[in-house]
Simulated scan of single mutants.
Amino acid sequence: MVVDDESFAAAYGEELSATLNIDAWQTGGDLEGLYERIEAEVTSGIAFEQAQRPTIRRELFPRLRTRPNAPAAAGCYRATLDDLRRVHRSLLFNGAVEACDGTRVEHDTLPVTITQIGVCLVSYQGDQGSWAQRLYRRDLRASTGNALDDLMALLDNRGQRGNTDNDERGKLSELARRGIMTYAERAILTKKSTAIWKMGHGDPTPYDLLTGSGSMQLLEKSMEILRELILQHRKILFVPSAPRAREWMTLGQALDPLEYLIIDSHTQKMLHVVESKDGGRGGHYSKEYARKVRDFCYEVGPHILFGIYRTSSAAPPQLFFAHADFVHEAALIAMADSVLQEHRGFPMLIDLADTICRTTFGNDIFNNVVQMAYAHAGEPFRFLNERMTRA
């Protein structure tokens, strides 16, 4: 992607040539100037956002319901404290909602690359389950009987691993690091959770699964598990941490506390992923899989609605996804769990799953075990890169 000078100037308010002139940069010791500029920019930005709020509420909120092809549930709604108390008593605190989250850590050196994926399932009843998978990636070790040929093959293999255009980092490593974990989170929610409501982290049909992260086998398995989770179970709720939908988050900033919006179905967003130029992680689908995935989008997408809620004046709005048949109850569950964290306005059950997962499968324990293995092999530091030995 080429960025022209005009686009840069429009976005940042100065010419790129001025930015590249390091003689005009501030010195590191000019803290007073730093504070003044940041305060001015933040104050101006917030004032601009606040100025949009009345127009959004007056003009755009009503159009959510009346625009062409809007889902029947579209519109702005307000929850009451009684609604949240009911959800707390009848669903959240009696274990009727389970949340799932995963984490991954990777150790990458010349001798071996180890990817650990961990997934945890939790509820407020104290029940929890955890699952882990570890993938061990080794370079080519087959022998042809000719030491020089074997060495040249090894060097070629490692050269490809270091080139993002050739193979590994963009495909196999991404499949191991993201695609499999994302699939496992949804598979465990579907197959292992026994709760009435299943809460997930992120988009229910994320890019990694709609493209298979480059693996058509993962794509097939993902469509199978998502059909079961979304079309058969239906009582699902997904909340992403950092949604990129800035246009919808702008609407969310206009919400009052305990209000939520139902915006649209997920079909077009799913189709956008499928029809993008990099569909299939670096290459187009075959015609057969392109048809299969489009059919899947039209089959599943209309049943998924997305919206935005806000729980307090201090907290940001949050995007959420739910089945169309239970979207209002899902919004109440998300809000009831999020009011427990006034400053975050994010479901605490997802945070709990994340904390348990990072504690169980995070960097500290994993790295200690790996370092011990290197020590036992007689090479505690030789194969570790600079970042691994940085204090």
Rank of each mutant, 00 (worst) to 15 (best):
I46M: 10
L226S: 14
Q268G: 09
R104T: 08
N368R: 15
K287Y: 01
A11H: 08
I196V: 13
R390E: 13
R344H: 00
M249S: 05
L210D: 08
D354E: 13
M249I: 11
S143D: 06
P54R: 07
V112Q: 14
D5L: 02
A377L: 12
I117V: 15
G378K: 00
P316C: 09
Y260E: 10
S130N: 07
A99C: 10
W131P: 02
G33K: 11
S241R: 04
G212R: 04
C357P: 02
F306E: 00
M270C: 04
S44G: 12
H88T: 07
E36R: 02
S338C: 08
A147T: 01
Y298L: 15
I262M: 08
R186P: 05
F346R: 10
G33R: 11
H233M: 10
F320M: 15
D30M: 09
E259V: 03
R390M: 06
T250A: 15
E41F: 00
L151D: 07
A99K: 05
P257V: 06
L189M: 12
Y136C: 06
P240G: 02
F361N: 08
D127C: 03
F48R: 14
K277A: 08
A24L: 14
I308Q: 09
R63T: 14
N166T: 04
L319D: 06
V87N: 12
V42T: 11
R78P: 00
L305D: 03
R89D: 15
T182E: 07
K269E: 09
E168C: 09
D149Q: 15
A11I: 09
N69K: 13
G33P: 01
V369W: 09
L81E: 14
L135D: 01
K198I: 12
